[in-house]
Write a protein that binds this DNA or RNA. Structure first.
Lengths: 243, 243
DNA sequence: CAGCGTTTCTTGATATAACATATTTGTTGT
DNA sequence: ACAACAAATATGTTATATCAAGAAACGCTG
């Protein structure tokens, strides 16, 4: 059974033409491929990622594969077992809540800063992203919706103008993303029919109200994560009972 | 001229005996060596770190060196130029302030959580670290003082019990540490004779007062960083005038 | 059949070689 | 002396071979 499904999607499409295909290094492409598999939850928690096997599957040598695996480990998106083998980390309820809370802290700060700096054009872009997101979600294309939701959060945080903050948020996402995807695979929708949290964020930006923006994105993260927390609680309770 | 001075310090001394010397991988040792050089500001901003040269200097092959360099790049402790060569990033005033602020946000949160969870034993450990720190500082051993200060901040954050938070703080430190060291090399002492900020943190922990702890560590970071900000402002002003 | 030692397989870690490209150096012709 | 082209060098990137340590399979003996 193949470890990674065949998805060489470039993520950052290079040019409007199919054009001079991305001259990324193999290492970079391997990184994107593995990260993509992780984000789309095609890798089971606890699964081993053996360098040689992954290399075979991607038809490249182990060197660039090893580089990308180690990079993902350093980003805490993957872990190492006692022997040094790369494994997909298990998402515990505890870890999930922890990451959610740190996301709220840092994305909240990002939103607050964004509220101060964002121009009307910036906000319009964000609004457009959200509308795309809603449209995609309506079509039940959860994978795509996931990506567009990520896009919203990243774009918002980028508006803070803080490189360091963005780095942190990006990094938290790669740890949290797989959990979200895991949920989507379960066929549940984390968001409800009410007014979507993103809207409140956009309104706060328009008012240039930092604290309102902070609260809005924090509420969005909390709401979006609640379904995951519920489900993980249920699963952990079940497995405990089985023990 | 050698890129890295000879310092193979194990950081995490393994055992009380000189004992079964650390069976770290070469990659790990290279990482520690390069990181150490960075933290002790033996690398000039803008300097190139050529994999083969570093490998020669450490008497190992390029593979583990490349791995550690890439790891440091992924941690934003080093950067890549357009060609892919690793370079020591230049510290701008802007970046310095940015990292300081994000440190305040996250270490503040760490301290607040620590105030809730810390036992008296935990606090005693922290107190001991601070006393060591003061003693070392008095002896004008700035390098060692720097390490002990780092130890204080890390230990405090670890008391928060949040793995994710600790990872972020650790990562911010590796970006900020070189700047601190740079300052120390200039012979300036960032901390003053008054009651040290760490003391206020410890008091807040004893009172189990989260917000007081948050304020205390934030104030400490702000105060400690002020000298750096002043100096960088001065330097940037000068270089602007020269232009 | 059980236990134990040996061989083989797996797999991470390291070294080295092969390759590609950009930069530098050197040479030559006018 | 200078411009243009060619050779050499520097350096990141990838592939492959080797090593070592642990795990697993295998077979031998009692």
């Amino acid at each position: 059974m193949p470890i990674l499904s065949t998805e060489a999607s470039g993520e950052k499409g290079s040019g409007a033409f199919g054009g001079p295909i991305s001259r990324d290094s193999l290492s970079q492409r391997a990184y994107i491929a593995i990260r993509g598999s992780l984000m789309h939850s095609r890798l089971r928690p606890g699964q081993k990622l053996v360098a040689r096997q992954v290399a075979d599957e991607l038809n490249i040598s182990v060197t660039p594969v090893r580089e990308s695996l180690l990079r993902l480990v350093s980003e805490h998106a993957l872990s190492l077992d006692e022997r040094g083998t790369v494994i997909v980390p298990k998402v515990t309820l505890e870890r999930c809540i922890e990451i959610r809370d740190i996301r709220m802290l840092n994305e909240g700060e990002g939103a607050a800063r964004a509220a101060i700096r964002a121009s009307e054009a910036d906000i319009a872009v964000l609004e457009q992203i959200h509308e795309n997101y809603r449209a995609i979600e309506q079509k039940n294309d959860y994978q795509a919706a996931l990506t567009e939701n990520e896009n919203f959060h990243f774009t918002l945080c980028r508006l803070s103008g803080s490189e360091a903050l963005f780095g942190i948020v990006e990094n938290l996402w790669i740890q949290f993303g797989p959990v979200l995807a895991y949920l989507y695979d379960g066929g549940q929708r984390p968001f409800h029919g009410e007014i979507h949290g993103h809207i409140h964020v956009i309104n706060a930006l328009r008012s240039h109200d930092p604290e309102q923006a902070r609260n809005a994105i924090q509420h969005d993260i909390l709401t979006g994560g609640q379904v995951i927390v519920d489900r993980l609680s249920a699963e952990e309770k079940t497995s405990t009972e089985l023990t």
